[in-house]
Design a protein around this nucleic acid. Structure first.
Lengths: 137, 137
DNA sequence: CACCTCACACTACCTATTGTAATGTTCACA
DNA sequence: TGTGAACATTACAATAGGTAGTGTGAGGTG
């Protein structure tokens, strides 16, 4: 199993995960290796939640390859397989490739349109990269 | 209802639609306004398919806003609300905005990395746009 | 006028994904 | 040796999408 959909009507981690999954990933990315009950405790601060619910979802995240499970005596400790940075890097790269593959030149224009209104610094950065690219040839 | 997910493990229209939905949209985008039985006839060339199945899915596409339904006497005629070009334009724009919103500078680099290996013409195009942008300022 | 057919509506079931949680099992330790 | 904590197993609800049976209504034809 893997992540195979990017939700356009959500934001942040919810674009890649269900709401509970996203909360769990958020916790694991902002803390050390944890046992289920630790995660449950964090979640319970906002809203009471059943231990088994957390366990089921965490095991599904293991199946998806985004969490790693390690037995430490009786308890299982969980940890993301990638850092948040790596994860976003991977996802944005995949999405970007998919987009270019699917839409080619179209996205380049959108990209610039968006940049135009957004961030002058990004445009500068873009130009630098282009110059660098041209020199290589 | 609307389209709210982009599938990374599919390609073409299947990135936005289910497999049957995608086939139906493909048919409607490559032909004139059609009745259900017309669409069914096209689909049946490859694989027998129930009339009601086609009807249900087409009505769901109307609910999603991608098809328009028009009564012509007893029969309903269906037609995409947008041309394929418009649809792809809309979708790629939304995705591009989402991506920039979510990942900012990260995607700019991916974009260039991808372009580097892919298409020199796109880079040229990009540079033109940047030059145009700079002059405006 | 009666009836039959066809297009459509309504409803339901199946699979997959995600959230939820009860029940069952195992094993360390008190 | 019995209890509890942690895990496994199982299952149910909701939503999306594919599939299809049954119901309804309106028109044409005998």
């Amino acid at each position: 199993m893997k992540i195979h959909s990017f939700k356009t009507n959500e934001s942040g981690l919810n674009r890649f995960f269900g709401p509970l999954e996203a909360k769990i990933m958020h916790i694991l990315w902002n803390g050390p290796e944890m046992a289920i009950k630790d995660v449950q405790a964090r979640l319970a601060k906002e809203q009471a939640i059943n231990f088994n619910t957390v366990m089921t979802v965490m095991n599904r995240l293991v199946d998806k390859g985004v969490l790693r499970k390690r037995a430490e005596g009786r308890v299982s400790l969980f940890q993301p397989t990638q850092s948040l940075e790596q994860f976003l890097e991977t996802q944005s790269k995949e999405l970007t490739n998919d987009l270019l593959e699917e839409f080619g030149p179209l996205v380049v224009n959108h990209m610039l349109d968006a940049l135009e209104e957004a961030d002058p610094a990004l445009i500068e950065q873009l130009e630098q990269k282009i110059q660098a690219l041209k020199k290589e040839r």
